[in-house]
Write a protein that binds this DNA or RNA. Structure first.
Length: 317
DNA sequence: AAATAGAACAACCGCATCTAG
DNA sequence: ACTAGATGCGGTTGTTCTATT
């Protein structure tokens, strides 16, 4: 049984919105709201548009306080940080950036940030390979004649430091930590009320996303105890925690916009007996719970309720 | 100045989830 | 409990803009 179309495709206009259409939609919604039914809205105001299209136009463009234009470095950091921890949950990421829409962030990520990271990662890998092979002539040519190091700006991104400054975890050390970290991430997710990926048959009901933390915890504990999640994005699996610290320039500073992680250091300490301070969280600490470079069966999937602002999921608005 | 390529942005599409009946 | 319709979300495509040749 096929799904009924949401509107009469034949009588619906597509493509860019005309200023008159924008004005009509905007003024109506500002005066009356969307009326609880997007599908019916275009008919009410005489627009030959799909209701979904109206909704999208309003949310992404006409809504008040929408911020257009270039993203700040701080916003970049937040987006990258959250992407690596929760993946392409654009609506959740957008909730952390007032005035930005999920569509905006998604576009920004796809057109700029991803390339930035991938491009630099490729360069970094090339540099490392070059070193292992005794450094290529090309790399040598680029070195600073003063100190023999490659130029600092060899990578156009501000995120990537010189590769040689990035320490790698020895295999054995990572393997040793794997079991501890497996339980760490589970405990973290349980503590925060984690939701597992949709391909997990034991996923907690989506409704828990709006529950208080304790309820979310109660609801999700059973499934979390019995399962694991996965990193599927090659971009995410391709970095190690120390790289991420360096990448986001947060080796010793608190990550901007990631208040939700504050106090995580204590949790890490609880597990490992470490001695990091509670008011400072680095990627090494965060991603040791979320990101498992040598244990690919884990994914950092965090609950919307983890964030300070409530994330609206479903229902009317 | 024209052609082309690539980047950036806007919008569409289809699926998953939610909700009311 | 089930179903149909509405909504939300993320991936993808199409269009426009800008830089380069």
């Amino acid at each position: 049984m096929g799904r009924a179309p949401c509107c009469d495709k034949a009588n619906v206009k597509k493509g860019p919105w005309a200023p008159e259409e924008d004005a009509r939609l905007k003024s109506y919604i500002e005066q009356h709201g969307f009326g609880g039914n997007w599908i019916a809205l275009p008919q009410k105001i005489g627009l030959k548009r799909c209701g979904k299209s109206c909704r999208l136009r309003w949310l992404n463009y006409l809504r008040p306080n929408i911020k257009h234009g270039s993203f700040s470095e701080e916003e970049d950091n937040i987006i990258c940080s959250l992407y690596i921890s929760i993946g392409s949950r654009w609506s959740i990421i957008a909730a952390q950036l007032p005035g930005r829409t999920d569509n905006d962030i998604k576009n920004y990520w796809n057109t700029r940030l991803k390339k930035k990271l991938l491009g630099c990662k490729q360069r970094k890998d090339q540099n490392q390979q070059g070193r292992r092979a005794g450094a290529s002539k090309q790399a040598e040519a680029k070195r600073d004649p003063e100190n023999g190091n490659p130029p600092i700006n060899a990578c156009p991104s501000t995120y990537w430091p010189e590769a040689s400054a990035v320490p790698m975890y020895p295999m054995s050390q990572v393997e040793q930590r794997a079991d501890e970290e497996n339980s760490s991430i589970r405990r973290l997710l349980m503590k925060l009320g984690g939701r597992l990926s949709s391909d997990n048959p034991l996923s907690v009901p989506p409704a828990t996303s709006l529950l208080p933390l304790q309820q979310a915890y109660d609801a999700s504990t059973a499934s979390l105890m019995a399962t694991s999640v996965q990193i599927t994005d090659p971009l995410m699996t391709d970095f190690n925690p120390a790289e991420l610290d360096e990448m986001f320039g947060c080796g010793s500073t608190k990550l901007e916009g990631l208040d939700c992680f504050y106090g995580l250091g204590n949790m890490v300490d609880d597990n490992s007996g470490g001695a990091s301070t509670s008011d400072t969280v680095t990627w090494s600490e965060v991603s040791s719970l979320i990101y498992q470079p040598m244990v690919p069966s884990y994914q950092g999937v965090m609950q919307p309720c983890l964030f300070e602002e409530p994330v609206h999921l479903g229902g009317s608005q």
